[in-house]
Design a protein around this nucleic acid. Structure first.
Lengths: 213, 213
DNA sequence: TGGATTGTGGAATGGATCGTCCACAACGTA
DNA sequence: TACGTTGTGGACGATCCATTCCACAATCCA
């Protein structure tokens, strides 16, 4: 040990994330990050390697956070509330996009759009993230099926893929310009059309909240 | 009039599109486009203005094409086949992403992710495109409702928004790394969960094709 | 045919940007 | 306290890239 670092690594990564989030990978200059973090180039390169490595770090942290949010909302709990957990998760995701007034979108989507094609690290990390989300959703759908909130004859894997697509799709159409109110409706509608067990009455799809739980 | 152009404008735009599609806006150099099109820089700038204008042109053409594909599949026809048209459109979109082995994704999504936040032209054009697609889907859903393939109590506007979100979402999760087979399943499942009129029997959601029409 | 006009291609320009380098600072250790 | 080690910040070099410029070519029109 010799001279200790004068900066907080987490804080630097946060600032770097803000920059990448705001202006993308190619659009962000290392000088911007240096200015935003207050670090000199020497420290920056010494601590995080080059621009690519720094982005991978930020991108990876973001992916982790995305999964953690889903875990916080979805993992565990009684079957009786599985449907509530699903609803709240999907609505939360819609709300996040709806309230993103700066239209920054999701760094995951942005990074994938810009880099996945040519950067195996980004592609791999995003694929892992999708798989993790899929698993969480499938588990919760199975729980809701056990409790009789979703038709047990439906394939939980496929319903999970549908919900994941809706969640990521909301982000996409939101960034593409659909208005916030419509985004919220999409979340509600997606939840409302999930197949009920035989004999249970369905509320008219897409008119207000899905069900009263 | 004096010396006529020695190139075909449409062809140049196609080549330019390939470049932007492959490497994004920031990742594409004007030299790349010059090489890809065989044009010199002088001709390129003389005919299309700067890089930004050229991209706007390409992006606009793409958006037009996206809507035209939807119009070709969705606009018009007897109500009895509206559900078929919807199904085929949604499956076609899934197939496009599923078969995109190079993972280039959709230039619309890519352009929006990279530029919409800071480029009003791109943001505006993408929003128009979403609105146009929404209208086409809503019209077709209303037709399917009239024919009794979709519950007339459901709000066609909201179902249209859901399908648009699924279509765009398939593109997003496909680029994010979900496997092609899952993408196809998502399309099938989304169609299968559309609300049937009272009394009509629903096939189990997400097991094979939606219905036999 | 010759001048005016527009198109063409590639060299040149000017600015931006990544990453390195280096002189100096701060800390642990002897 | 003196020295080795690691951190710091900003100047610098090398490269890259959008755009301009210019000499020349092809066409139209008189």
């Amino acid at each position: 040990m010799a001279r200790p670092r004068a900066f907080d690594e987490r804080q630097v990564l946060e600032r770097a994330r803000e920059q990448f989030w705001a202006t993308g990978y190619a659009g962000t200059r290392m000088d911007d990050i240096a200015r935003a973090t207050g670090l000199g180039k020497g420290s920056l390169y010494g601590a995080f390697g080059d621009k690519g490595e720094l982005f991978h770090r930020v991108f990876g942290d973001w992916c982790t956070a995305v999964v953690e949010v889903a875990e916080g909302r979805l993992a565990g709990g009684p079957d009786a509330e599985a449907m509530t957990r699903l609803s709240e998760y999907v609505r939360l995701m819609a709300e996040n996009t709806a309230s993103d007034t700066e239209r920054r979108g999701c760094l995951l989507a942005k990074g994938v759009a810009e880099l996945a094609q040519h950067d195996p690290t980004v592609a791999g990390r995003s694929a892992e993230t999708m798989t993790a989300l899929l698993t969480l959703l499938r588990t919760e759908i199975s729980a809701a099926q056990r409790h009789g909130d979703i038709d047990a004859a439906a394939d939980p894997e496929r319903l999970a893929a549908l919900l994941l697509t809706v969640v990521r799709g909301i982000e996409a159409v939101g960034k593409a310009g659909l208005d916030p109110e419509t985004l919220r409706h999409v979340a509600d509608t997606a939840l409302a059309v999930l197949p009920l067990p035989e004999g249970r009455e369905r509320l008219a799809a897409g008119r207000g909240p899905a069900r009263e739980n």
